[in-house]
């Protein structure tokens, strides 16, 4: 049993030390986060938009800030990519309404039949997401 006491000590102490470090870093992250995620701008519409995003399983094909599936383009910066305040919202709305494109040889996106309210909420959510400080990721505007 002599051998066991020392590793056990390392086992528990390392666990506690690293959990404390993670909690400390998390507290710091949560404190400084409002500056980076501009949560002051969160509106009920944006929150509804996040729900539209989730309830249609958009990450089943797309990525959002790089997380999701890799079958369709990154959408974290789609609002900016498609013109930002100069037409970004208009483009996304027209695009979603035009699906599917039925262009042969091109991957098809389904028609989700979103209401105008849902569309505007989704666009507001994508606009808010594009303004998160992501340490200048993605490397190219193309996503």
């Amino acid at each position: 049993m002599k051998i066991l006491t020392k590793p056990k000590y390392i086992y528990y102490s390392s666990l506690i030390i690293f959990i404390c470090l993670l909690l400390g870093l998390t507290i710091h992250t949560i404190i400084v986060l409002p500056e980076r995620d501009h949560r002051d701008n969160l509106t009920p519409q944006i929150i509804q938009g996040k729900m539209v995003w989730e309830e249609n399983n958009c990450i089943g094909c797309h990525t959002l800030l790089g997380e999701g599936a890799y079958f369709a383009p990154e959408l974290g910066n789609i609002y900016k990519r498609r013109g930002g305040s100069h037409g970004g919202a208009y483009f996304i709305k027209a695009w979603l309404k035009a699906m599917p494109t039925n262009i042969p040889g091109r991957r098809q996106m389904p028609q989700f039949n979103l209401t105008d309210e849902e569309l505007h909420a989704l666009i507001a959510f994508l606009k808010w997401t594009s303004e998160i400080n992501t340490s200048s990721w993605p490397p190219s505007e193309k996503g």
Binding site: R36, D37, E67, T134
Partner: peptide, 11 residues
């Protein structure tokens, strides 16, 4: 945590 909006020290 690199690119989801949290501080850069996570990198």
């Amino acid at each position: 945590y690199y690119w989801i909006g949290v501080p850069e020290y996570w990198q």
